[in-house]
Amino acid sequence: MTERLPLFPLSTVLYPGLVLPLHVFEQRYRTMMADLAAGPEPHRFGVVAIRDGQEVAPTGQDTRNPALAGLNPDPAQALYDVGCVAEVASLQRRPDGRYEILASGTTRFRVTDLDPSGPYLTASVEPYPDEKGEEAELLAAGVDRAFATYQKRLAGARESSVAGKADLPDDPTVLSYLVAATVILDTPAKQRLLAAETSAERLREELRLLRREAAILGRLPSLPAVELTRQAFHPN
């Protein structure tokens, strides 16, 4: 079933079950939050990630203006089409008109139509269900182990200590989103994890990424600085 949501583009990816704190200062998003606050609960909006190297032009602005040079006037090109619904837990308006928001990701959606004509972006979206997929439990066990190794090597590279191992969730889908949100990756990689068709597909990709990143981190202390940079930005 299609529904219409206000959209909040961000330079990061929101996953179901994860918390999203927001400090809202742009006028168009202040307007969005005021409209949400005036509407019925639950207050919900869609979060979509901005593609690397893109920036969305303010809604309704003439991008021929030199001050807006380089901004993409077409949000369909600047934004990914799979996002996550954010449900507001706390919405506070400050005296200067800014908002402090605490929201959490709930479900995935796919954008079917964008409307840039209003004071902020809205979109028609359809649910994007997350099936578990084959071998999800087996893959989850492998990700659990690989994530522990990644954390230890990351702490070593930062010359910090790892706190006692926290219990990771047993549910493969919940685990897949928690790991996706925690691992240090660029936006395209994080978006691919969000858009995976099944939890098993996401876990399989996470297992590959965790092993790759752990291997890179394991080599860092023994490499000269120039080689460290090459390895960090151009992994095999």
Rank of each mutant, 00 (worst) to 15 (best):
I216M: 13
L10S: 00
E227L: 12
S199E: 04
A123T: 00
L68Y: 13
Q231P: 02
G164C: 07
T122F: 02
L102C: 03
S160K: 15
R212N: 14
M1H: 13
E126V: 15
E205R: 14
P224R: 08
R98D: 07
L18P: 00
R98C: 12
V183H: 05
A49H: 01
R153A: 06
D35M: 00
V47C: 08
P95G: 06
D186T: 03
Y120Q: 09
E201F: 06
G97C: 04
L138N: 11
Q61M: 15
E135D: 15
N65S: 15
D52E: 10
A225P: 01
A136C: 09
V179P: 12
P127M: 08
A67W: 15
H23E: 14
A189W: 06
L209V: 10
R202W: 10
T63E: 08
E205I: 06
P235Q: 01
A148C: 06
L210N: 04
R230K: 14
R64G: 07
V88K: 01
M33Q: 05
V24W: 06
L79G: 04
P116I: 06
G39D: 09
P116G: 11
Q92F: 12
R108D: 03
D62M: 07
L10T: 01
A140D: 11
Y150L: 03
V162R: 10
E26W: 01
S160Y: 12
N236T: 13
A200Q: 07
A200K: 06
E55S: 08
Q54T: 00
T2Y: 05
R208C: 04
A181P: 09
V24T: 04
R110P: 00
L68P: 11
A37S: 08
L194E: 07
L175S: 13
F25V: 04
S161L: 11
L18N: 07
A89E: 15
E227F: 09
L36I: 01
L68I: 11
I50E: 01
I50G: 02
S160F: 12
S11F: 03
L5I: 09
R110M: 01
Y177F: 14
Q77G: 10
G17T: 01
R28F: 13
V88F: 04
G60Y: 08
Q77P: 11
K190Q: 08
P58F: 09
V48T: 08
R108V: 02
Y80Q: 02
L14H: 04
D74Y: 11
S104Q: 12
R108M: 05
K132Y: 13
Y29V: 04
L217Y: 02
L168Q: 07
K165H: 12
A196R: 07
L175D: 13
P73C: 13
G39I: 02
T63G: 10
T107A: 12
L220V: 00
T2F: 07
P40Q: 14
A34E: 14
Q61A: 15
V82D: 06
V88Q: 02
F233C: 11
A181M: 09
P16F: 05
P9W: 02
I101N: 05
D81Q: 09
P66T: 10
A141W: 09
R202V: 06
V183M: 06
S199Y: 05
A67P: 11
T106H: 11
A103W: 07
Q77N: 12
E100R: 12
R204K: 14
L193I: 00
H23Y: 12
R202L: 10
D167G: 12
L121C: 07
